[in-house]
Amino acid sequence: MTATHDRPAERVPRPPRAAERPARRPLRPRGLSGTALTVLTWAVALVFVSPALWMVLTAFKREADAYTDPPRLLFTPTLERFATVFDAGILPHVGNSLIATLCSAALVVLLGVPAAYALSIAPVDRTRDVLFFFISTKMLPVVAVIVPLYVAAGRLNVLDNIWTLVLLYTAMNLPIAVWMLRSFFLEVPTAVIEAARVEGASLPRVLRSVMLPMMAPGIAATVLICMIFSWNEFFFAVNLTASQAATVPVFMVGFITSESLYWAQLSAAATVVSLPIVVVGWLAQRQLVRGLSMGAVK
């Protein structure tokens, strides 16, 4: 059939799954009511997203154009507000956020993939209990642990240290990540693994060359969700960091306080700090859907 079909992994018959029913095609609109629905959908979407559009628009305004009644749609755009954001020294904080986001995502994968493996493909006893434990730690509000964490970080001299946030974000995202990864791994056909084992491949080798390629989309989806939550996290960041390790949400708050609340300025800063994750999320929409639905849908 196709060129990919001569890969050995593809030849193993996959067990039928409910999810492999022929995909349903979205209903095709007919005639006038279809057009009306399309117009309605577009209108609803534009109204819903208007605060974000307004933010981007306001970011290009002079402050005088931001405070008008009625609100002004037409104006002479300027990049001055963005220049101010960068002049305020945002870049080191972007660096901090990148470290916190990327390193904690890497740690989540490092810890979460083996754990999810042990809970799905080679399930241990009491799998339900362990899963239950993981998700129940998510029920633990962060406010309930912030005081001891603050005291401990102070004693260990790791306050205002970006690696403290890396560890905490890993702990924050690990429970959900284990759940998501497990759902994805349940989709991996075990026949493939058994076949490779029978042919004498060692377990690490099976993991690396057979399983990892099949798991990659699920891992990508999980990493994406973790990145969104870490980049946007504020509570740990504001309580455990100061000038050195502050991430972008903390910078944003300090910037607004020191610059007072000028709307165009605020909008420009909001646009800049949100842009990285917005772009990543846009590009990886499919993974986002898979991750959020815990792999329930392809």
């Binding site: 979407a45 534009l46 819903f48 997203v49 605060p51 974000a52 307004w54 933010m55 306001t58 931001a66 969104i228 980049w231 946007n232 504020f234 972008v248 949400p249 944003m252 708050v253 607004i256 609340l261 709307w263 605020l266 909008s267 800063a269 909001a270 700090v273 949100s274 994750i277 917005v278 999320g281 846009w282 929409q285 986002l288």
Partner: peptide, 21 residues
């Protein structure tokens, strides 16, 4: 793509924008 954007915007920024603009 438009509709998923609010979920991706920094919540701190979202709160400030709602309060003001």
């Amino acid at each position: 793509t438009l509709l998923i954007t609010p979920f991706l915007i920094l919540p701190v920024a979202t709160a400030l924008l709602w309060k003001t603009t």
